[in-house]
Simulated scan of single mutants.
Amino acid sequence: MPLLPPPSRPPRPLVVSTDEPLLDEVLRLLAAAGAEPELATGGPALRRAHREAPLVLLGADALAAGALRTLPRRPGVVVVAGGELPPAEWAAAVEVGAERVAVLPADEGWLLDRAAAAVRAPVPRGPLVVVGGACGGAGASTVAAAVALAAPGGAVLVDADVWGGGLDLLLGAELVEGLRWPGLTGLRGRVAGEALLAALPEVGRVHLLAADRGSATPIPDEALVAVVDAVRATGRAVVVDLPRPGPEGPGAGPQGVLADADLAVLVVPARLRSATAARLLVGAPGSPWSSARLVVRAVPGGLDADDVAEVVERPLLGVVPHDRGAVARAERGEPPGATARSPLGGVARRVLAALPEEDDR
């Protein structure tokens, strides 16, 4: 009988320190992060662990050790100190290529998150789709909701239009408990994605971050980027419903998510004036919508979808047919139809199919 290979061992962070009080604190934090560390201060064990560890935590006391100076630079090195470093030790931290100096106890939370991320199995970053309308009432929110509902494995639908009345109304989720935007506008930087998802309302397989219905609370670009990055880090798809450009022009608004989007979708009603507005939007110098693809919403007596695409000079992804019952269903709180046989569901699946492959993101 062939021998079975030994079970793979989870990655172990390397800790280099002989400062007992500091070492106790670091080991406590690693235990809380679910990480079993490896301790080494020199010799072949240090060289091997330094090469293989997903994260290297250097006590400030180890910065003067000669063994560290012989090791090559590598990413994922953090210096941990029990107080502010003097200039000489700061210079040594720079010399070893430390990404950060974590001072305890002030940086405990950051160090805990960093250690947990280092030992977690890598997850492919989720795709990002942004949806906007060429004009008011284009139907961008409906398309965005349909794309989120059609995403395999679920998605997170983010409402970035503070004047839209709240996407939870569109999905019939206004009474579902969970965080809305006013509670998250102060976010900056690194955010724990799974904790964020657990706090959001959920409708089917869609987690929803809706705008406030009580007041049009501005959403800082930094907070929007922090939310989107945190969710994408969990591997989930993110669909952002963007507000239409205001009088400041197409370059205004949430620049961070537009710049990072894997696919920008512009929804255009099949009218000449709407198509012309879309052409101005994608053609403006420096416009973040310049690479957008089009979804055309058919209107009675309107233009043909191919004619709209010709005016806008952007590729056509799909056409949402005119649906006389859509308004009545929305008023009843019924989510947009994204079933396999519905026309809107077909458009949503074509949008998802247009996303680049994982390796190209």
Rank of each mutant, 00 (worst) to 15 (best):
R190L: 02
W181N: 07
A62S: 10
A309R: 01
W181V: 08
V225Q: 00
A261M: 03
G235D: 09
D260M: 13
V227Y: 05
G283Y: 02
V295G: 00
A330D: 14
V131Y: 03
V156S: 04
L57N: 05
L85D: 10
C135H: 06
G153K: 09
A223S: 13
E222S: 14
V56E: 02
L208Y: 05
G132L: 03
V101W: 02
L208M: 12
A45D: 15
P356W: 03
R293L: 10
V227M: 08
A298T: 08
D19R: 07
S215F: 12
G251T: 14
L281Q: 08
R190F: 01
V119H: 10
A33N: 14
V176W: 10
L224S: 04
V239G: 05
V26T: 12
P37H: 12
R51C: 10
A210S: 15
E334N: 10
A91W: 02
G165D: 06
L197E: 01
L200V: 08
A106N: 05
G325M: 14
G186L: 11
V225S: 00
P124L: 01
V239R: 04
L39G: 10
P220A: 11
P2D: 15
P321M: 10
R332V: 11
G139V: 00
R188F: 07
A277M: 07
G164I: 09
A211F: 08
A151Q: 13
A117C: 08
A155D: 14
D260A: 14
G337N: 05
G82K: 05
R47M: 11
R114A: 01
A278W: 04
V257A: 05
A284I: 01
G136L: 04
P152M: 11
P288M: 02
A121N: 03
A259H: 05
G235L: 06
A259D: 09
A67V: 07
D260E: 13
L57R: 02
A145C: 04
